[in-house]
Amino acid sequence: MSQYIFELEMQVRDYECDMEGIVNNANYQHYLEHTRHEFLAAAGISFVEMRERGIDPVVNRIEINYKMPLRSRDHFVSKLYMRREGIKFVFYQDIYKVSGELCIKAVVETVCTTQGRITRGEEFVPYFERFLQQE
C-alpha cells in the first residue's frame, strides 16, 4: 500500500470554472503542477533553483482519471507519492475534497534533463531518495 508523502490544501477560484460551474479540466493540471513544485520546495530545492543549475524535471506523460468535479470555492487537498521507474520519476497524485470525496487520480511521469540533455535522473536522487516508494 502506498502512502502519501506530501499534501497541499487549496481552494477553487471562480475563474477556474467553466460555464457548467465546475473546474475546467485543464486547471487540474495546474493544481497537480503546483503541488509538485511545492513538494520540491519542501524536499529542499525549488523548481527555480533546479532550473538555475541546468536541471529540468520534464513531464513525459500524464494520465488523469476524473471522478468527481470540483466547484467554485470548494476546498480540496492535493496529495502525492512517488516512485522511480527506470529513468522516470513517477508521481501518483490524487485530489480530494476536504470532506474526503476523491475528485481525480493522476499519474505523472517525469524525466530529468541536464543542460538540455536527457539523463538517468541521478541529479534528483539526493532530493527524492527518502521519499521514493517501492512497488
Score class of each variant (00 low, 15 high):
103 C>W: 04
117 R>Y: 10
127 Y>S: 00
4 Y>K: 12
49 E>Y: 00
98 V>N: 13
91 F>I: 04
94 D>Q: 04
85 E>S: 13
27 N>D: 10
2 S>I: 05
67 K>C: 14
41 A>Y: 03
126 P>M: 03
73 R>P: 09
32 L>H: 00
21 G>T: 01
13 R>V: 14
94 D>F: 01
36 R>W: 05
47 F>G: 09
126 P>E: 05
105 K>F: 03
81 Y>A: 09
3 Q>S: 15
128 F>L: 07
103 C>D: 06
94 D>T: 02
15 Y>Q: 06
22 I>H: 13
54 G>R: 03
18 D>C: 10
69 P>K: 05
122 E>F: 13
28 Y>S: 01
51 R>W: 14
116 G>M: 07
122 E>Q: 14
131 F>Q: 09
60 N>M: 14
67 K>W: 08
57 P>F: 04
83 R>F: 02
4 Y>C: 09
128 F>M: 05
104 I>M: 08
7 E>D: 12
92 Y>A: 12
1 M>E: 09
132 L>A: 05
63 E>M: 11
48 V>E: 03
41 A>V: 02
9 E>T: 14
102 L>Y: 09
82 M>D: 11
1 M>F: 12
114 T>M: 15
30 H>D: 11
127 Y>H: 05
125 V>S: 08
70 L>K: 02
118 I>V: 11
61 R>P: 06
133 Q>W: 05
28 Y>R: 00
88 K>I: 04
70 L>H: 05
